[in-house]
Structures are given as C-alpha cells and as structure tokens.
Design a protein around this nucleic acid. Structure first.
Lengths: 183, 183
DNA sequence: GTCTATAACCAGATAGAC
DNA sequence: GTCTATCTGGTTATAGAC
C-alpha cells in the first residue's frame, strides 16, 4: 500500500466504512488495514476520533467527485444517459456511505448538494425544450424527468446493494431509456 | 405499546435496526423501547442474542410480506406499475434492513428470493407478449423491462434513502412510465 | 418474567518510552 | 510517528432474588 500513513488510513476507512458502515468498523481495524500495529493508538496521531476520520473520508470523496466532473454531452439523450450512469459509478463509494450512515453522515448537506447537481442534468426543463422543438413527443415533462432520474439511480443502486444482475449492459440500458423518451 | 413483551421487542428491533443498523443499536435500547428496565438482562429471557433477534425480525417481515401478497392486476401497465410501487412500500422495512446490514443479513437468501419474485411481475416476457399483440410498440424487451424495474425500484429507494422529493405523485409517476412504454 | 447486580469483554482514547 | 501499556466507558451476557 502506497502513500502516507494518513492516506492509507483514509483509504482503509473509505473501503471498510462503505462496505460495513462506520459503526461496525473498529479503530483497530483501520490501524491494521493501514499497516500499523492493531491496538496501538497510532491512529490518533492522524485523526482525533473515528467520527473525525469519517468526516475526512467524506470530504475527500466529495472533492474527488467535484474534480472528476465534466460537462454533460450535448449529442443526444442516449449519450447523456450513459454519461450519467458513469457519473453515478464515480460516486459509488460516496453513495454507499450515504446509504449506510443515513442521516448521521458528516457533511451530509454537501453530499446531497452534489447528488442534486448531478440530477439537475436530467431535469424537466431540458425535456420541455426538446418537446417544444419537436425532438421528442410531448408528455408530462416533470413525470418523465422523474422516471428518467429514478431509472438511472435505480440501475445504480440495485446493482450496488442487491447485487442485481442488470441483465442488459449499460449502453443497451441507456439506449432503451432514450428510445422510450424519444419515440 | 401492545402485544407480548416478545412482540414489543421485535417491533422495537425492527424500527431501530431499520433506522440505524443493528450494530448501532444496543440490547439496552431494545429493552428500553419495549418498556423493560434498560440494562436488566430481561431481553435474554426472549432471545438468545442480538443476532438471534435480528434473524427473528427478518423472519417475521418476510412472512408478513408473503402474507400481504396479492396477484398483479391485469387491467393495464399503468395499474400494474402503481401496484408494484405499493408492494415495494410494503417491503420498506425489509429493504431498509437489507441495505443497512448488507451481506450479513440473516436469511439473506429468502429476502433476495422475495425481491426477485416481486421483480418477476415486471419481466421481459410480459412485454414481449404485449409487443406481439401490438398493444405496445416493439422495442428491445429485455432492456425496456430493466428500465421499468429500475425506475420503480429507484423511485422507492431514492424516496427512502435520499429523502428525495419525488416531485410528482405516485399515480402520475406510474402513468408516465406506462405512457413511455406504451406509445 | 422482571428486577438488581455484576462478570467478562471490547472499543475508544490517552500517556509516555523510543 | 510508532510502539507498549493502560484507563475508561459502554455492551453483551449471566446469576440469583423476588
């Protein structure tokens, strides 16, 4: 394992907190995962408490997600949906933390903001504009935007938490969703 | 709070495990929630361990979900999708347990079977039959079935875990999804 | 069946040598 | 910065009176 001890602790914490929830992970586990002697308090030279390291993990993941951000493709619904699935994939660990920790996640507001901004790429106004241009059939734009958003989010969450075999690959899924909206 | 002490312990355990995860809940909390003296070992007159009560909770919820089962409506896609959303609602606590406990949930296989049977009502074969009858346009049936399933599951999960304001009500959501598939 | 009391244990956190 | 050793508090689980 590479990086400073602090970074190795953060890496271990991210992996274990996302997989098992922070309550289920002992500081000892983090020390062991970072190559420190388990049971030594060496962890506390780097973080004040377990809550502190959780906050630092969330912080780092939010920064990373923001840094990874790219602009939504303008080419078509198809490409835009595939792009959104990829974005969700990049936030996989953060989403796992959010779901496992629930309302007690540090920096909860920042994570929610990040996800809301992600969802904004799929908003009803964009659909309304496409409907006005005759690009896609006119329907209840707000409801269709909901369906699109939740189909993409559901695809991601089901895969992550239910181990659901999606059955069809990502491109085919995005294409089917675009086809439903566009015809 | 009504019922026997055992039932009150189960009720408390369900609520708290679903909300915070079993790791975060102490046996003391369960005793308090059931109106027993916290710290007394009275819990252990009813269950052998915390793991034991978690298994009993899952067991009872699976039984309940099976008992609540009704046959899918044949009236139309619209009604069928609304019915599925209601079914997911009835499994809310079980889904929360599954997501919070992850792979260490007792009776995991039974829960997964239950969810898979639920998803089977929305399978590709049904869509293929409707396409063959000309009831809905011909598309990639497997991919469309995926989209439908994940839209419904995503609607439920987003509401449950992100506190997402769905924006449109349940009937409008189901109607929009049916409209996308049917035209 | 529930209580008080307590044993045994483990996790979070600190002190001080190196 | 990491270690050994330890304190402290909370949690699981049991013993025995009522």
């Amino acid at each position: 394992m590479a990086g400073t001890t602090r970074e190795r602790l953060l890496d271990t914490a991210l992996a274990q907190f996302a997989a098992r929830g922070s309550e289920a992970v002992a500081v000892t586990d983090l020390e062991q995962g970072a190559g420190l002697s388990p049971g030594s308090g060496s962890f506390y030279r780097h973080f004040r408490s377990k809550e502190d390291v959780l906050a630092a993990v969330v912080d780092r993941e939010v920064e990373r997600a923001v840094a990874r951000r790219s602009t939504a493709p303008d080419t078509g619904l198809d490409a835009r949906y595939a792009w959104s699935l990829d974005n969700l994939d990049g936030m996989r660990a953060l989403i796992a933390l959010l779901v496992r920790e629930g309302g007690r996640l540090p920096h909860l507001d920042r994570v929610q903001t990040l996800l809301a901004e992600e969802g904004a790429h799929l908003d009803a106004d964009d659909l309304r504009a496409r409907m006005a241009r005759g690009e896609i059939p006119s329907r209840d734009a707000d409801a269709v935007a909901s369906v699109v958003l939740f189909a993409l989010v559901g695809h991601h969450l089901a895969e992550q938490f239910f181990g659901a075999t999606v059955g069809v690959d990502r491109a085919r899924f995005a294409a089917a969703l675009a086809s439903l909206v566009a015809t």
